[in-house]
Design a protein around this nucleic acid. Structure first.
Lengths: 226, 226
DNA sequence: ATCAAATTTATGATGCATCATATTTGTTGC
DNA sequence: GCAACAAATATGATGCATCATAAATTTGAT
């Protein structure tokens, strides 16, 4: 799932570093506002600066990292405006994915979706938020996978990359409720009801994301010290 | 419009080369199947290979260029499958843009849209397909602009980057009819009717793209010698 | 003349030296 | 002590040398 982007891409060291940083972003290992230094990363990874620079420039391009000034590369902060825009885009695109997934899903794929939800339930019971967060994301991407839309997968991966640091920050607050909204999605997919699946995903994004939005608005009123 | 991606991005030589290549792709100056060589480009542009490599890697990442093998960088061919997927995504995203544009557009912005259509009409009358193609694209991006969704603009720019070489190839065949579908969009925006604007853009993408699809399907039956 | 092995060439990958400049630290005059 | 200037440091940008290997070309035996 994590290599959604360049599955067919020629593999070089730069790509490896890129995926490494992607995972770090998605898993919330890099906090908003945190600064990255090319030389430091290169030393840590045991490569020269070239592949690290390749990777970082790629992430800057897709705005998963921000270059505030010429020597200041940071994990960007999400703004309320940006979040609302991304939310609107996600509803359209993940709605499309869910709709196609409902049309396409075979019995085995449905079982896999159910298994993801089951594991997520377990993770919540265990109080393992990191795993719950990961499984939540995997559910969303499993839909795109079933939809059979590789190009869409790339777009959505880049979008999730932006939300990674934020979600990891907030998930603990009310992430447990997020799973509730996956059951209607599952039901719609089982019924092969595309429009219902799209509506259910929309509900998930809107309601599940409510916690995130509140967190952001709170942070806007009292801006965090970075 | 062409700098839709990294407006706030730190400017380095790599970015300059990147935008240069973007424009070349969108204007159809690079044909599908054409090979690019880093050293050759660097020599042509009078830079070292580093910035050119930066730019090309960025384009490869977003699949505007393809690395068939480790030393073989080419402008990719569009497939029917991929086109259909992109079309579905465009209908959702440009529909969203049109809807928001209809809500937001002020009098001045509507005049600018009308002006774009007028110029496009003129270009068709002059038989200037290159200019017609460019104005068609500018109309679509003007909508995103009015919608006030910069993140969406980046996504759509990347999508159009993929279609650039194809459209430039095909536009001459039946591109003149494309403009017809912009009038209903304009009418919906004037009426501030979001859903109607979304439907009109959907029609534009579906009907206007019919020529492109036929061209692609013909090419699939009798694959082009590249 | 033909085909295969060997050689040469082409080309992206990688590492690294150097540059320019922003940031930090230190120094000096008041 | 403090402020303003100066030196030092840090850091991304750029260019370039070298490497590995794929592609092209040459060579030579049959």
């Amino acid at each position: 799932m994590t290599d959604a982007l360049d599955t067919l891409e020629h593999d070089n060291l730069g790509s490896t570093v890129y995926h490494l940083l992607c995972n770090a972003l998605i898993q919330g290992k890099l906090k908003p506002g945190e600064r990255l230094k090319i030389r430091e990363l290169a030393a840590r990874l045991g490569t020269s600066v070239t592949p690290v620079r390749d990777a970082i420039l790629r992430l800057v391009q897709e705005q998963a990292l921000a270059m505030k000034s010429a020597r200041d590369i940071r994990v960007p902060h999400m703004t309320v405006e940006r979040y609302l825009e991304i939310r609107a885009i996600r509803i359209k695109l993940e709605g499309l994915a869910a709709e196609m997934a409902a049309q396409n899903a075979d019995a085995e794929q449905i079982v896999q979706l159910e298994e993801l939800v089951r594991q997520n339930e377990q993770a919540i019971a265990d109080g393992d938020t990191a795993r719950g967060c990961d499984l939540n994301q995997r559910f969303h991407f499993a839909l795109v996978d079933i939809a059979g839309m590789p190009f869409l997968q790339g777009i959505l991966y880049r979008i999730w990359l932006q939300m990674g640091p934020l979600i990891a920050d907030v998930y603990g607050d009310g992430g447990d409720d997020m799973l509730d909204f996956h059951y209607p999605v599952l039901a719609a997919i089982r019924a092969h009801d595309g429009p219902a699946a799209a509506r259910a995903i929309s509900d998930d994004i809107l309601c599940g994301g409510q916690v995130i939005l509140q967190h952001l608005q709170a942070a806007t009123v009292a801006p965090p010290a970075v």
